[in-house]
């Protein structure tokens, strides 16, 4: 085993509720290099958020370990900042204050007040939110909230940035715009990033490797696809690139051919039910 920056080793996760055990993740192994951009893709409910939360330390794996920079992860901390599925800004704080809460707490001892102030402004500027510093979350759009969430996470200078479907709730245009922004920031800062997504194009466009999870229950790492495309990447020129389309197809094939069984079952059940309902109506 080589020493990696972040390694997820033999992680199992079983939730037990009311005496019923349900295994969500089974034997997950993954090594991530420093500065690498990993996308995790898989069908809804397969356990992507669960895996991310284990890396964040928000939940503890039933067995196995997450090791970051030589230390085992047991609880959450600012070295693994998270952009949550639904922004989760604090609505009683302004945009500035939301980022300030994170910055002031993380760098309370290491930076002066003026340095922290400048750092907050710099991060908000990076995501293009300088004009709305004193607005509250309910006064800005969904895309803007997600930007602030990203600024808050970046400002903590985490070792790993964890993004849980950061653009999932946004319209296509805003989403594309924010993807560009994340690519630009990544170009500049070389963060280590793990991003969950549903979107095949997003995964291929942004990441260095795509980790595909099999369907739950007991999801495993199905395939890992290396994305060997030069950066900076441009979505328009890539659209005609045969390698890009090849990668896309690989992911699509995994999701819709190899992992379609569960959906088929659901489909069949739905058909059976509607047939039964029809018969009932006739009777």
């Amino acid at each position: 085993m080589t020493a990696r920056y972040l390694s997820i080793e033999q992680v199992d996760m079983t939730f037990s509720r009311a005496g019923v055990d349900s295994q969500v993740l089974k034997n997950i192994n993954l090594n991530v290099e420093r500065g690498e951009y990993i996308a995790i893709i898989g069908h809804s409910g397969c356990g992507k958020s669960t895996l991310l939360n284990i890396v964040a330390g928000l939940i503890n794996a039933t067995s196995g370990a997450v090791i970051l920079d030589g230390k085992e992860v047991n609880d959450p901390g600012p070295d693994r900042s998270v952009v949550f599925q639904n922004h989760s800004l604090l609505p009683w704080l302004t945009v500035y204050e939301n980022v300030a809460l994170a910055v002031n707490k993380t760098f309370a001892r290491t930076r002066s007040k003026a340095e922290r102030h400048a750092w907050i402004l710099k991060n908000l500027e990076m995501v293009g939110m300088s004009a709305a510093l004193h607005k509250r979350p309910d006064e800005i759009s969904g895309g803007m909230k997600q930007r602030v969430g990203i600024a808050r996470a970046l400002a903590m200078e985490p070792k790993v940035l964890l993004l849980d479907e950061p653009f999932g709730a946004l319209d296509a245009l805003t989403r594309a715009h924010l993807q560009e922004e994340v690519m630009r920031i990544q170009e500049e800062l070389h963060n280590t990033i793990i991003m969950i997504t549903h979107d095949v194009d997003e995964a291929v466009l942004l990441s260095d490797r795509i980790v595909m999870l099999t369907n739950g229950p007991s999801a495993k790492v199905g395939e890992i696809l290396d994305i060997d495309l030069p950066r900076p990447r441009n979505r328009i020129t890539l659209a005609d690139d045969p390698r890009y389309n090849h990668y896309r197809q690989e992911v699509l094939r995994f999701l819709y051919e190899k992992q379609r069984k569960v959906e088929d079952l659901a489909e069949r059940r739905r058909k059976e039910q509607s047939a039964a309902a029809l018969e009932k109506e006739r009777a």
Partner: peptide, 17 residues
Amino acid sequence: PEDYRNVARVLRLNGYE
């Protein structure tokens, strides 16, 4: 909301904070 608790946990806010 669970989200706010998670934010607090990631930031390692202490009980008073």
